[in-house]
Design a binder for these strands. Structure first.
Lengths: 211, 211
DNA sequence: CCGGTAATTCTGCAAGCGTATAATTCTGGG
DNA sequence: CCCAGAATTATACGCTTGCAGAATTACCGG
């Protein structure tokens, strides 16, 4: 009975690669590295396992591509935060901070993917480089936003001071990101952005008037 | 040739369980869940795989015990931070914050274990409970330290204010813990505790005089 | 010094893993 | 309309995994 073979439709390379990457990220978010098996990824993408090797030389290649995509999307989302931002430095920093503490940047999926990849990122130099670049970009954006705020407040800062301020605000955001993602039931929707904004003000010695 | 069988020494239950737990945590820190296989754990503990089943009903049981131990040790280390602390509220909070940002509480091993267990903790209610309890303990300690500092400064806080302050300081510590552990080469030994202390002061509106 | 027993090792198994490759089926260009 | 070639599925292999149970060995009490 030759009719038992599964029907399929041909899709473009970009589409299939994208589906596989998305499936890999979903599984990594839900169950960590253990859940992101070749067979599970293929099934989630609506495809048989063999196809993965047609688009990626190895599973590790697929995971590397997935991580790169993840970092790119995160960076783009952070940037998009400033799309409809006002012109004044305080307003821009406020958008950036609050945006970082709302979905899709702060949620269980994001931290799940982050944790799932952590060991792979530490081990593979290629992934570590991707991680560093993404981190530096975020950090640089934060630093220039803070520089503008301090300058507007008439308190220009040296490079070292600026670095310290950015590290602290960065840590505050990361910590709230972590807590809000791991224990989401402890924080209702807007408490995280509000708290992040208020305490960023405390760190920098400025006041954000408008919520 | 019956002499090929491996020599061994009998150890007490506590000793062997402890060795297995330590081995599991080491492997989890180094390579995540993928590395913490039954065979690898046994080898690291200097034992054959079968013995694990003599002391733990299943691998999951061993991992749960390992995670519980990990949380206990972390909690004990946080407490020990206050052992030789001064009496004044500012000094006590300073000890707590700086202690949390130094080894063995802040290092690559700790965050590796934390990330390695994350998905298991989210999935298994038992582990989630252990995590919550550890988190609440840390958080409670921080809250009472902050309460004492604010009271001494003549600025007593409501429960809600206190909770917000503790959440923020907690986030700052967590964020610095994360960055310092994942990118240790970016922070020399004492910058993390110093920065944490200074910025905790900024968050609470107090000054820590003595470094 | 010796037997009983619990700690430990050894061997084996079924399932799942990533990968390789052969066999099919869809689809666009003539 | 059809056929060439690429996209996709199917099958198979060797390895690793967690788990189970039988076989052995170290140690304690007499």
């Amino acid at each position: 009975m030759p009719g038992t073979r599964r029907k399929f439709r041909r899709e473009g390379e970009a589409q299939r690669q994208g589906d596989l990457i998305e499936a890999a990220l979903d599984l990594m978010a839900e169950g960590g590295p253990q859940a992101a098996t070749v067979r599970a990824i293929a099934e989630r993408a609506g495809v048989t396992p063999g196809l993965i090797r047609h688009y990626f030389r190895t599973k590790e290649d697929l995971l590397a591509a997935a991580y790169a995509h993840f970092v790119e999307v995160m960076t783009a989302n952070h940037r998009a935060t400033l799309d409809d931002a006002p012109d004044d430095p305080l307003g821009r920093l406020a958008r950036f901070v609050t945006g970082a503490l709302r979905p899709p940047l702060t949620d269980a999926r994001t931290v799940g993917i982050w944790a799932g990849f952590l060991h792979l990122v530490q081990r593979e130099p290629g992934l570590k480089q991707i991680h560093r670049t993404g981190y530096r970009t975020f950090r640089g954006e934060l630093e220039s936003l803070i520089a503008a705020v301090l300058a507007a407040a008439g308190r220009p800062a040296t490079a070292a001071e600026l670095e310290a301020e950015a590290t602290a605000v960065n840590a505050l955001i990361d910590g709230l990101w972590l807590e809000g993602s791991v224990l989401p039931e402890d924080f209702s929707d807007e408490t995280l952005p509000r708290l992040g904004l208020k305490k960023t003000g405390a760190l920098l010695g400025v006041r954000f008037d408008n919520p």
